[in-house]
């Protein structure tokens, strides 16, 4: 399990990185945390001729908080985001979700932006990106551009990113006051890719639901948002139509069978997790206020 030969590029600036990506085109891959890429290389499932290692690029390691956004740079490790008190206060869903990413060792090295660029349907952070209306900041040969998360993901492991573009940050949208969030998933083993997972955002107006949205992990080909507002708006906490929500989830998700669980099981699981998340989210204040 050794990778095929490749050229290692170590640019110091974003422009340099983009320039190298432009030169090598489809034969290049960006290396950030490497937690998905390196195993793929070692198993020779892919053998790109060039790795553009951005770990030495300046200016990509910051978490910035503005009234509208939490901006996460391309070199922020999952563990860094998990520990970032400001980010957790501004958008609790980030910490709720990121602690479900694999294991501590992987979170220590892997990057949140990298996992979004990787676009694995089993990834937690792509779901959070779409649910918060995030913006993906990209730099290419013709300069920077911004892609709404909803337009970024096109299929499993596929995005609208061009081979000569680098994702430099993701801006997660902050949520209105009175909003509670929840993230839960179920895996065969703790830290594994989830069989199903759900991220939930519920905005309350007093005791009544004003708006609610969910996105999912491992049960949709690309992360997308299920708007539950029509089902829940005006309903009071403690009297939510959980069965109808579960039914809406079952209709929304489109899981596949694999050796770990059938599609039917995953559909049931996504619905049940959402039901439990909704119940917990609207009754338990501690998690959402973290």
């Amino acid at each position: 399990m050794k990778p095929a030969p490749f050229v290692h590029h170590a640019p110091r600036t974003v422009d340099e990185a983009v320039s190298v990506l432009g030169e090598v085109g489809h034969d290049g891959k960006v290396l950030a945390g490497g937690q998905s890429l390196i195993p793929v290389l070692n198993m020779r499932l892919a053998s790109p001729g060039h790795l553009v290692d951005i770990n030495g690029v300046a200016g990509l390691g910051a978490v910035d908080i503005t009234p509208e956004h939490v901006r996460v740079g391309a070199l922020v490790r999952h563990a860094g985001l998990e520990r970032h008190g400001g980010a957790a206060a501004a958008l609790p869903l980030l910490r709720q979700a990121v602690r479900n990413v694999a294991h501590p060792a992987i979170r220590t090295r892997g990057t949140t932006v990298g996992s979004i660029a990787h676009a694995d349907p089993a990834g937690e952070m792509p779901s959070v990106a779409v649910l918060t209306g995030a913006t993906v900041e990209v730099v290419g040969p013709s300069g920077p551009r911004e892609i709404p998360a909803a337009d970024f993901f096109t299929g499993p492991l596929e995005t609208t990113l061009a081979p000569d573009e680098l994702v430099v940050a993701v801006r997660f949208g902050r949520l209105p006051a009175g909003t509670r969030t929840w993230f839960t998933e179920s895996a065969r083993r703790s830290g594994d890719y989830a069989l199903a997972g759900v991220a939930l955002v519920v905005t309350l107006d007093g005791d009544a639901v004003a708006a609610a949205r969910a996105s999912f992990v491992s049960v949709t080909p690309v992360p997308d948002v299920l708007d539950l507002t029509d089902l829940l708006a005006g309903r009071t906490v403690g009297d939510l139509p959980l069965d109808a929500v579960a039914e809406a989830v079952r209709a929304h998700v489109d899981p596949e069978s694999d050796i770990h669980a059938s599609a039917d099981y995953r559909r049931m699981l996504a619905a049940e997790l959402t039901r439990r998340a909704l119940a917990a989210c609207t009754t338990d204040h501690t998690e959402g206020a973290a």
Partner: peptide
């Protein structure tokens, strides 16, 4: 060990062959 009918081992890695962790 999950073999398909053609004799391919479908889970020849620690990602898909589930050895319990300490947590399990």
């Amino acid at each position: 060990m999950v073999y398909d009918e053609g004799g391919q081992l479908l889970n020849a890695s620690f990602m898909d062959f589930l050895i319990p962790y300490a947590s399990e």
